[in-house]
Write a protein that binds this DNA or RNA. Structure first.
Lengths: 151, 151
DNA sequence: ATTTCTGCAAACGTTTTGCATGCCA
DNA sequence: TGGCATGCAAAACGTTTGCAGAAAT
């Protein structure tokens, strides 16, 4: 997925191409496998654009890109979120300590959780919600304070 | 688990028994299977105490109860959290649409996710993080706006 | 020209903090 | 009495909103 594909998709939806949107698309295209927080994306987009972009514009643009289906967001442990291009069919396993995220093939996670959820009358949403745990590095660290966002 | 058990456990740790703590313990004991947000707990504790309790006191008391291991918290889809008594060994499956939460036996969820996580160098934390999905009732509702907390 | 986007600033909800006072043991 | 716990008020964090003006088509 390169910039043009993103930009063309935007235009195909009748949306306008503004400098802010172009910069955001550029950042996403430059690092297509990245999982960025809106804040990260904002920083990089400002560099890309060479001028300030309001954070609310980033959020609104992300809304738009998701409506069009080009981007997905995932809620991560600290209460925040990350976005990534929608092209790769993967889900996420995130360390709640260091934030490390590994991509897991969609089928793998569906196979593990689908039947369990079915049994309880649910269908799991592994697109928007990561499975949370501890990576091996963090697993051997000492226990931490309770109840804070990070646990 | 009744109030006395909670209160005794507090004292056994050398902690002080204050009206606020007593009310909070009472609320938890009154509804031992409840999954309450800190806000819910706060409201109920004020009723129980018959006087105002500061919300920050509720948070600090929850911190304390968790340090002692009497209470667990779980992060839920809307960015908030719920707390419940630590006695039942269960994890959670939560609907991100209506908030409905079903308890899942710990072994069942561990069996489903443990091997997957291992394969990727993780150990899952299903105590503090719910598996998120859609309950069957909500699953047939129309799609909703993207990127908002509730998706 | 018209409709969509943007920046700004303010507000949101949940949670955390500093500080001075108060109360339990 | 001594130290833990509380209330209060303010701040933190990520996110959302209303509004008026700017810009893309």
């Amino acid at each position: 997925m390169d910039v043009d594909a993103l930009v063309d998709a935007l235009r195909a939806e009748g949306l306008r191409l503004t400098p802010a949107r172009r910069a955001i698309c550029q950042v996403l295209a430059d690092d297509p496998r990245a999982h960025l927080t809106p804040g990260d994306l904002h920083e990089r987009a400002e560099v890309e654009a060479g001028r300030p972009i309001d954070l609310s514009t980033v959020y609104r643009t992300l809304d738009t890109l998701q409506e069009v289906g080009l981007v997905h967001h995932v809620h991560v442990p600290d209460g925040g979120s990350v976005v990534h291009l929608a092209d790769a069919d993967h889900h996420h396993l995130t360390c709640d300590r260091c934030g490390r995220t590994v991509d897991v093939p969609a089928e793998e996670i569906a196979a593990a959780l689908g039947p369990l959820a079915e049994r309880h009358g649910f269908s799991v949403d592994t697109v928007h919600f990561a499975v949370v745990g501890r990576c091996h590095d963090c697993a051997r660290l000492p226990p931490e304070e309770p109840y804070r966002s990070g646990s």
